[in-house]
Write a protein that binds this DNA or RNA. Structure first.
Lengths: 201, 201
DNA sequence: CTCTTATTATAGGGATCCCTATTTAATTTA
DNA sequence: TAAATTAAATAGGGATCCCTATAATAAGAG
């Protein structure tokens, strides 16, 4: 009998690589080495399996970066490490490129609207997590009280989404980190770059 | 007989909204009011039609913003207007949300790899267009000679991709422009924000 | 060993996928 | 008007979609 976590691990890999619409139940059963009825008895439906695969993947991929945010590091350094960790996640050697959630199901057939709603909610939750850390920074005096933490969170959210897209298109880890370094110069109060130099980091 | 441009306009709308894998040839023929053989005689195949729809849409949506880049405006202001125009394109009232190209076919079934390669190439071309404008800015003395224009272009490319994703998730025009304003503070030599204030723009 | 209970595999239902061979209708040419 | 040409519609082929009813097998209980 197939172990549930092993099955989810395989589902994560396929959905991550091919997306929800690009992955068929035949792909899934074949990769898991099971027959359709087993898949449906274990996971309910394709959509239910996707939901469980997302949860499974998020629990595994985001724990470190959430600890970084929750730590007592200065907010700027926490953000830096947070983004670097995401860049690493986007370019893991033996895993699909990009992020399973950041750029998933943006376009979709009408019948998959509920799936799209699901990934959109996960992205919004991610933005809110960032915003909460920035709000904490205000409370702790690290950011001016009137800081627009919502825009700040959505800005770095956009960077995260852009990194995922570019990783899917083949960008390497170093390229993503150069992108992060530039994005960090938009941090309030940080020294604006007099110049963005190439190659000499 | 169906006018070719009318057909392409309908195809653009469907592919833009639902993506390549989320749009069926039955959707297309039904929306165009034609029968399958007519579609195939006019456009060749689903993939060929997608290619033509991309070209058709790009020609229509990007002409203004390319003129802005080609103009003799200072590079910073050209970039600002360029990004604003994209934000407008991401949130047009009677069109699908986001950009048809920026976040298209990032995940896909194996059999659609050639389609993904197609959109990836369009995104790369878009980055190179931005980079070329920044290189021109170096030549004209608007940027320091050693500026890493590649990273700069990919950074604003990431912003463009993030805006498309967030527009798909429901972000309004004003929210995207707040995001742009923040991203522009990463421009070399620009005044770093002492604070990012909310609401008082 | 027999019977009950799980578990797995087979087979397939009904719909849809992309695409095309063939038929019907409309139009043009002689 | 008759023949030739063009356009459109029907019908369907072969594959795949998600999912499930049924049959076969294996394991446990009496």
């Amino acid at each position: 009998m197939l172990d549930r976590d092993v099955g989810l691990d395989i589902a994560v890999r396929l959905f991550w690589e091919r997306g929800y619409e690009g992955t068929s139940t035949a792909d899934l059963t074949k990769a898991m080495g099971i027959n359709p009825p087993t898949l449906y008895s274990m996971f309910g439906s394709k959509e239910e399996l996707y939901r469980q695969a997302l949860d499974f993947s998020i629990a595994r991929e985001t724990s470190r970066r959430l600890e970084i945010l929750a730590s007592d590091l200065p907010v700027y350094e926490a953000l830096t490490l947070f983004l670097y960790d995401i860049a690493d996640g986007d370019t893991q050697p033996d895993k699909p490129r990009g992020c399973m959630v950041s750029t998933a199901v943006l376009q979709h057939a009408e019948e998959n609207a509920s799936v799209a709603q699901m990934t959109a909610a996960l992205r919004e939750a991610s933005v809110q997590t960032l915003k909460a850390r920035f709000d904490r920074a205000i409370e702790e005096g690290e950011l001016p009280p009137q800081t627009d933490t919502d825009t700040l969170a959505r800005f770095y959210g956009a960077i995260i989404q852009g990194m995922s897209a570019q990783a899917c298109d083949g960008a390497c880890n170093a390229r993503l980190k150069r992108l992060i370094d530039l994005a960090l110069t938009a941090w309030p109060g940080s020294a604006a770059p007099r110049a963005v130099r190439r190659g000499d980091t």
